[in-house]
Design a protein around this nucleic acid. Structure first.
Lengths: 205, 205, 205, 205
DNA sequence: TATGAATGAGTTTTCATTCAT
DNA sequence: TATGAATGAAAACTCATTCAT
């Protein structure tokens, strides 16, 4: 048997390139960032970028893919099978656990999050990646969890799964996105959003 | 007295340029659209674009500004002083009226909406425009309405105005944005979103 | 007999265009000045320039030609036949009279003078104009004057007419040109230059 | 210790670009020469010009600066400390030595000289460069030499240093400049100009 | 692996000029 | 006479990418 192909560890320069590209894509957009700017910011020669990431777009994907996998799929999170596998007695428990986990990721990678948000609507590859990872790794678990919570009377029955998801994602996104655009969101803001969201999803009285 | 400067009506070609730019910006982003593409799509010479919109970015602003003014400011909407001035007996009434109005605008100008969404995070001018128009024309009326609804026991008191606004905007944006990205949202979806939103904002039992 | 073609007096706008072009040509050069800039500075529409001066270069010639004729040819100066026709007893008298006259002209039209200086080396038409006017109207009178002064023992005999002219022109030009470039030249400077020039041209002791 | 930044030797193509630009600037002026023309004449791609000289104006400065330093500053000339350091017994010796040296330089780089002459009045950077180099490297030595010559009774005392300089420069420039513009100047012309200049600067009888 | 010179196609923008009004 | 919209060509400059070293 042939030995497994050696996954060489990424070079120092390669990592510098990724970091610089991330920073610039977040600030000025993918199309608004030139490879020269990336090279300068990364402290490498322009040619080096193309040694590692031909063509330019592969750099965008290289930056986004791991993040998408990690942030979109609850399964992918390290040791978080618990999150999804677990049974939650109340809707609030579920939402808070979910939020804490997602929030940790977007806070750990705020620029990646921003790049993804900005570029998703312009690049088919990103949208397909998002949908594929979500449908495969996230949606089934959400639906299972929704069913369980409905059985416990914790979740309203008059709203489709898709709209529940949309409401959850919108609230999460809003908390994250508007925190850049409008104002910093602190712990108080976050718990208020969660309280509203919980009530939104709870069965009507 | 100096005669007032003659505001010449916009040329036919100028309108064609705006229309073509809107279409292309929405599809491929501002930075991803060249002025040559715009010229071709508009059926004019490239030089004509810069006669009317020097530099390129002013074309983006020309497209976005009227929309921002109209869509962000409830006051600005034609004949909608009623919306803001009126007293609503229930939270649901207010939300439905607000939604119907905003929705009408974003559905009337879906591409402008999309351009604004895509470019706002990349262009300081757009963010400042948004904030300025919102702070001037929208925020005060929302806060007045919130106060009135709280007095009637229709609105929860444990959430800040800013977070209420964020929740509302997130829900509206989600309904609009995901309808492009993820799936068409129909009347059922919309009423479900509104039902959730109403419950989210209602005072806790 | 057909009536002589009516020389319409130049329009107000035409004069504004000439004035604006002169100013801009002097500051930024002919090639560095656009017709749009001229139009703006003149307060006319761009098309108006081409009604009066098609093509652009004719504007340069329109500005330079009258000046060349007036300043290069002592004959042309109003009432200055005296200058050239007169007999001067001393070299100094001749130089001072010549200088006073030329200086008056370049000081009256400093920007035209500058434009001519700047553009002469780039435009064949200007050089030909200069040479033609000079050879026709100036050179003969200078040579006649030189002869007269040599007869009176006022002018050195060991230097060709061409080099005498060059020395005179260089000194005059230097006084004028360096006054812009290096420092303002006042009356003292001018009389010192004239003193040096007189001594330069005088017969060696 | 940080290694000294490696000054890479100029590329072959870079030198070709400089040479082509010099040729074209001299013939058609800076503003009248397009980068495309330079690229064609140099046999390189247009982009290559901007690799080495962004923006275009830096190419003009790159051409002029070394020349200015060399030609304006007597000190800078190789081995010419003698020129400035030396004592001259007569004014004529000084002028001839000075002229021979400057003339050698302008004849070695006639096109650079022409470009400088043409563009100095249009580009502030060039004027500042000229003045700075002159004030720093030339003026003090001239003034020292003037003093020495005055002590020897070789130089007139009734004319300011500034005007002496102006007279010298004007005569030199005239010999050089008019040789392009008007006619070739040969050895006879040059010695006649020097004779006149010597007499101009000598103390009056 | 890393470099940076080189490129050709493309970018935004400016230009002198024309023309219908 | 005067305008300014319109243009096609060309301007300066940028781009992603290739390649010899």
């Amino acid at each position: 048997m042939a030995p497994p192909p050696k996954e060489r560890p990424p070079t120092q320069k390669k990592l510098q390139i990724e970091a610089a590209a991330l920073e610039l894509f977040a600030r000025k957009g993918f199309a608004g960032t030139s490879t020269k700017q990336i090279a300068t910011a990364a402290g490498v020669a322009e040619g080096t970028i193309f040694r590692h990431f031909p063509p330019k777009k592969s750099l965008l994907l290289r930056i986004c893919r791991p993040f998408v996998v990690e942030v979109v799929a609850p399964m992918a999170s390290r040791g978080l099978e618990s999150l999804v596998g677990a049974d939650y007695d109340t809707l609030g428990d579920f939402l808070r656990a979910l939020y804490a986990d997602r929030r940790a990721l977007t806070e750990a990678h705020p620029r990646t999050f921003r790049v993804l948000l900005q570029e998703a609507s312009l690049h088919l590859e990103l949208r397909e990646l998002l949908r594929e990872v979500f449908d495969r790794h996230a949606r089934p678990h959400f639906e299972r969890q929704f069913d369980a919570l409905r059985d416990k009377g914790q979740l309203r029955r008059d709203v489709d799964d898709a709209n529940l998801l949309r409401m959850i994602m919108a609230t999460f996104l809003a908390t994250a996105a508007f925190s850049d655009l409008v104002a910093r969101s602190d712990a108080t803001d976050q718990s208020q959003m969660l309280a509203m969201l919980e009530q939104a999803l709870a069965p009507p009285p």
